[in-house]
């Protein structure tokens, strides 16, 4: 039942990345999209376990980074992956990469169970439902894949200060005010950096002015 390589080793697919870095991210996104399709349409356990091997340690690490104790992070990561198995049918690769989909699940679980703010999750769910209703298949899968890959590259190339503020937001859950106090940067500068970071990514992803 084991897929043959442990999660922390390079998967055969990841090995490809070293060979052709330009298209690696694109292959990555397409690869996981295919595995998800197999899980949704054929209930393919091998595909699911490949997803599990790759993402479970990452989801757990993310949860620990945002402050969940190890045992809680473990439990929530298991639950996130079980939801993936359960809700594979509602995953749409034209809408988000698998990483983003799992990020939403993990973030919502953390806010629900660790911070105990279930209404926040209701708000998120409702907004997502609204998007599904309004934009069914708004972009072609190919365009979407290209956009996700583009974004991945851009996140990596953010200027150091923007990257730092982004990390403090996503991993430490800090408000603008808290970031400002902690690193002694004026509030307005914190905001303008975060604003620039997001707009820079957005412009590239959707090609909007």
């Amino acid at each position: 039942m084991h897929s043959g390589y442990p999660a922390w080793e390079h998967s055969p697919f990841e090995a490809l990345r070293a060979v052709s870095p330009a298209s690696a991210q694109e292959k990555d996104v397409l690869y996981w999209a295919r595995e998800m399709d197999a899980v949704a349409t054929r209930r393919d356990r091998t595909s699911f376990m490949r997803i599990y091997d790759h993402f479970q340690p990452r989801v757990q690490r993310y949860l620990e980074n945002v402050g969940a104790p190890e045992m809680v992070a473990e439990e929530l990561a298991q639950e996130a992956l079980l939801r993936l198995w359960q809700r594979a049918g509602s995953y749409d690769n034209a809408r988000s990469s698998l990483g983003t989909w799992l990020f939403r699940i993990a973030r919502n679980l953390q806010i629900d169970r660790v911070r105990r703010e279930p209404h926040w999750v209701n708000v998120q769910d409702a907004l997502e439902q609204l998007d599904e209703f309004e934009n069914p298949g708004e972009a072609s899968a190919t365009e979407a894949v290209a956009a996700h890959c583009d974004l991945a590259g851009r996140v990596e190339k953010l200027p150091a200060i923007q990257a730092r503020l982004i990390r403090m937001s996503y991993f430490e859950g800090k408000t603008h005010r808290e970031i400002s106090d902690e690193i002694d940067m004026p509030l307005g500068t914190v905001k303008s950096n975060l604003r620039r970071a997001l707009l820079r990514l957005q412009v590239q992803v959707r090609g909007r002015p």
Binding site: R58, R61, G99, W101, L102, R107, D131, A152
Partner: peptide
């Protein structure tokens, strides 16, 4: 909402970058 999806993508990317 479109911009919020981009912001979620940043989270997705950060999650994918985690080192097991």
């Amino acid at each position: 909402r479109a911009l919020l999806r981009d912001a979620d993508d940043i989270g997705g990317r950060l999650l994918a970058q985690q080192q097991p």
